[in-house]
Write a protein that binds this DNA or RNA. Structure first.
Length: 845
DNA sequence: GTTTTGCATGAATCG
DNA sequence: GATTCATGCAAAACA
């Protein structure tokens, strides 16, 4: 992985993953200031980051002599050119007018820290950097009067930049001056990284052979960049457009950092190649293509493509695929300006079929059309799905539209997004390319890459801060999450249950009680707040308590059950226990108890441990009791989360609750397709299935019962609970012991508010049961005692297990299964006996 | 029931 | 404030 090292001899901080994540670069842009010491990173080039082939040597752009890569040991040996590449010092000093940037090294002994000071900075900007006060200097630059090049925001001012002397002037040469000038002329204080970013976004090819003098629209066919079958389109005219082209002053406005461009801009620093080329002007002489659509194709890519296609390739524009573009709808939204500039004019909304060739020569036919939209048009290419799939593109990848000259045929290339690499093979080594490391692939070149064109420059990419990505737009505002690096995503990965553990109702919020399915829920107008994570326990006596860890001393304090803590909480905030309101006071809990507590609170699998009777020692009894209590409260067989404070979503439910309400996405939006495999849908389906099975079973039981009643006198021990065994009595008996626990559990779930039982015995489908429970229930109902039942039994309070002899367990479980089969769902604790009507009618759905 | 189609909406960006 | 464009969504078409 590439790395940068702060050049401050006393700092020497390196960019590392930890660094990036922990405190990052200060500038928010690409490394500009060491966050550690504040020294400038700018202009410093280091081996791993910059040189393409790991040789450590590069070539002077001017004299072609090898120079060192710029590692610390040889940091004075060369200059890093604004417009890309490096040059040896000797050449640098002779490069008048080529905006050679001085190497800026803290502690540098060079006079003024400047090399190539004669470089003609057209801006009159002081060509040196005060290494010790980079920010100040940048500020100063901002106020430089001669700034010719404005901020990025002055997008369109690019056209008023320095005039080009002749049409045939190569792009690169132009940029060498202008871009370099723009670097120091960048007055953007708001985006401190801009200077660097611009530099790298603007750097040009060492030998760009793509000249704007390309007779745009003067292909042999005389047609402007159109698909072969599209006739009758406007011919490319010279006039305003081409004149504009001739006079086009190419200071490629640094493109807006699109998802790829942003990363590539950084990558460009590495490869010094991927620059946004002002595209060929399109039809109608309109040249307002936003730079984000400027094709960013390297020379090599162009050459390669041209070689492959044996034609001259004129890059037109590119677009980063949005989720919609890459989705199954098969519609690729074309930027309006691009569509109108490079595609045939259409008057009808239906548009025209248009043939576009991919880089393999395969021809695709799309429907080029538009929709009216806000008095404007929205251009789309329809039917792109096969092509997209063929190219294996996805959201974030870039499609590049080019034109073949002669012929004017449209070609569609692509470049894989570097972001996607993250999910693939981050280990992919840099390709030894003359173009620099981590080069993304353009179209077919990707085929030759081991990872399908996804390159490893994500290592550089990782250094693109989110602030920069934030500006990215092309992937869509709603898709910005796609920009998140996988590592970042990992950092943020948190389950909904975990979130619920942390959410609290806003302290000032007052809930509205709504009743859904006879269940009361508290709805809050205000957004929830994050609270402190606590652990709830229940003693075998049924007492509920809550444990919180002091943020200051890390000691654990016992708190009343109903308390909701803020995110930050210390011992001094312990107003409920004056004896434990200081960090100086030792823990409320012994180490062993603490261990058990943490095991309960921390490890979602702790119940497995408990079930395995590990550490069922006295010190862990409370924990076990907690488990049992929470199991009783939530779900007997639920291996879910520890019982923690009420959630905001519906505080009756505790974090970890995976009932159908809790597992719904927070927005509640989005419709579920019948094929949807989401938890909600699966749960509903499963429960429906369970319900039907229950009904069926019940019906058969009734029939059998009726038949039995006809034949004989009912069995003596048969209670009137519709076949309920005596086991249920055992359970009920057990419940009587624990009911208070369960009851209080319910109470606490509503933060003290009394809420009614969730029991499904009222003849409703219980949507609050644990979705994973039904299968177990089903198995139990049909197969009698199962392993699950045994496991569940282990969740019964130890007291019960010990007080009741083990042999009663079988009966108990059997009856439990029977009771469950009768629709008494255990999720909310024990069967609510009150709901079990004689005759088992309570299970009616 | 699924897919396609056309439009509406609103965030982001531009001027 | 205007414009662009990604996306949601409902109706229509299709299987």
């Amino acid at each position: 992985m590439g790395s940068m090292i702060c050049m401050n001899e006393l700092c020497r901080a390196t960019t590392s993953v930890e660094w990036k994540k922990g405190w990052g670069f200060k500038s928010g842009g690409f490394a500009k200031l060491c966050y550690n010491c504040g020294s400038a990173f700018e202009n410093l080039v280091f081996c791993e980051t910059f040189h393409p082939d790991e040789s450590g040597w590069r070539e002077c752009r001017t004299c072609r002599k090898p120079i060192h890569c710029g590692c610390i040991a040889s940091k004075y040996l060369y200059e890093y050119l604004d417009y890309g590449g490096v040059t040896c010092i000797k050449c640098a000093r002779h490069l008048d007018g080529h905006s050679i940037r001085p190497i800026q090294i803290p502690g540098d002994d060079f006079p003024n820290g400047t090399l190539g000071s004669k470089s003609a900075q057209p801006l009159g900007v002081e060509n040196k950097i005060d290494e010790n006060d980079f920010e100040r200097r940048r500020l100063m630059q901002t106020n430089e009067p001669g700034q010719l090049f404005q901020t990025q925001r002055n997008d369109k001012k690019q056209d008023t930049m320095l005039p080009i002397g002749n049409v045939g002037t190569c792009f690169s040469n132009l940029n060498q001056q202008n871009i370099g000038a723009s670097l120091f002329g960048k007055p953007d204080n708001e985006r401190p990284s801009q200077g660097v970013k611009d530099m790298y976004e603007s750097i040009n090819q060492p030998s760009l052979n793509f000249c704007l003098s390309t007779p745009i629209g003067t292909s042999s066919s005389g047609q402007p960049f159109l698909g072969g079958d599209v006739e009758g389109r406007e011919q490319s005219k010279t006039s305003p457009f081409q004149q504009g082209q001739r006079a086009r002053h190419i200071l490629p406005k640094p493109p807006k950092p699109s998802p790829t461009s942003g990363s590539e801009s950084v990558k460009g620093m590495a490869s010094q190649a991927r620059i946004a080329r002002p595209p060929a002007e399109g039809r109608g002489g309109r040249s307002q293509l936003l730079p984000r659509y400027w094709p960013r194709i390297t020379d090599q890519e162009l050459e390669k493509l041209a070689g492959d296609l044996k034609s001259t390739i004129v890059p037109l524009f590119e677009k980063v695929l949005s989720a919609s573009d890459a989705g199954r709808i098969g519609r690729l939204v074309l930027p309006k300006a691009c569509a109108e500039a490079y595609f045939p004019p259409i008057n009808q909304s239906e548009g025209l079929p248009i043939r576009i060739q991919d880089i393999k020569g395969k021809e695709w036919t799309f429907q080029f059309r538009f929709w009216p939209n806000n008095n404007s048009r929205m251009y789309v290419l329809e039917g792109v799905t096969p092509c997209i799939q063929n190219m294996q593109l996805q959201a974030g990848d870039t499609v590049i539209f080019s034109r073949i000259d002669p012929g004017g045929k449209l070609v569609m290339g692509f470049r894989k997004a570097t972001n996607n690499v993250d999910m693939q093979d981050p280990q992919t080594p840099n390709l030894p390319s003359g173009n620099g490391s981590g080069e993304t692939s353009f179209s077919g070149m990707a085929d030759n890459l081991p990872n399908g064109g996804r390159t490893s420059d994500d290592t550089v990419n990782r250094q693109v801060p989110m602030s920069e990505k934030k500006k990215a737009r092309n992937i869509g505002s709603k898709n910005k999450r796609l920009l998140m690096h996988a590592d970042d995503a990992m950092e943020l990965r948190i389950t909904w249950e975990e979130i619920q553990e942390l959410l609290r109702p806003s302290p000032t919020a007052k809930p509205n009680i709504v009743v859904v399915e006879d269940c009361e829920f508290e709805e809050y107008e205000e957004a929830p707040v994050f609270g402190k994570r606590t652990i709830f326990t229940a003693r075998s006596s049924g007492d509920q308590e809550q444990w919180a860890q002091c943020d200051s001393c890390a000691k654990w304090r016992r708190l009343p059950f109903h308390v909701l803590l803020p995110a930050k909480w210390t011992c001094s905030d312990n107003i409920w226990d004056s004896r434990r309101c200081s960090c100086a006071i030792p823990d409320d809990i012994s180490p062993r108890e603490l261990e058990a507590l943490l095991r309960v609170g921390k490890d979602p699998k702790r119940r497995k441990l408990v079930e395995n009777n590990e550490d069922l020692e006295s010190s862990g009894l409370d924990a076990l009791a907690t488990v049992a209590a929470s199991d009783m409260g939530d779900s007997i067989g639920d291996m879910g989360e520890p019982s923690v404070g009420a959630t905001t979503k519906h505080p009756r439910h505790r974090p970890g609750c995976s009932c159908i309400v809790c597992i719904q996405p927070p927005s509640g939006k989005g419709k579920h397709h019948p094929t949807c495999k989401c938890n909600v849908c699966l749960t509903v389906k499963r429960r429906f299935k369970t319900l039907m099975l229950r009904k069926k079973k019940k019906q058969s039981e009734r029939e059998a019962e009726l038949a039995q009643a006809k034949d004989q006198v009912p069995p003596k021990d048969e209670p009137e609970t519709d076949g309920m065994t005596s086991g249920i009595e055992l359970l009920q008996m057990n419940h009587s012991e624990n009911e208070h626990m369960n009851h209080s559990d319910n109470e606490r779930n509503s933060n003290g508010d009394q809420v009614e039982e969730f029991g499904p015995g009222k003849g409703q489908l219980d949507l609050n049961c644990h979705p994973n429970r039904d299968d177990d229930m089903l198995a139990e109902a049909t197969a009698g005692m199962s392993m699950t039942s045994l496991v569940n039994a282990t969740n019964l309070p130890l007291e019960y297990l010990t007080q009741n002899r083990l042999e009663s367990l079988g009966n108990s479980l059997l009856s439990q299964a029977a009771s469950e089969s009768e629709g008494h769902h255990p999720d909310n604790g024990f069967v609510k006996t009150a709901d079990v009507e004689p005759g088992g009618k309570g299970a009616e759905a």
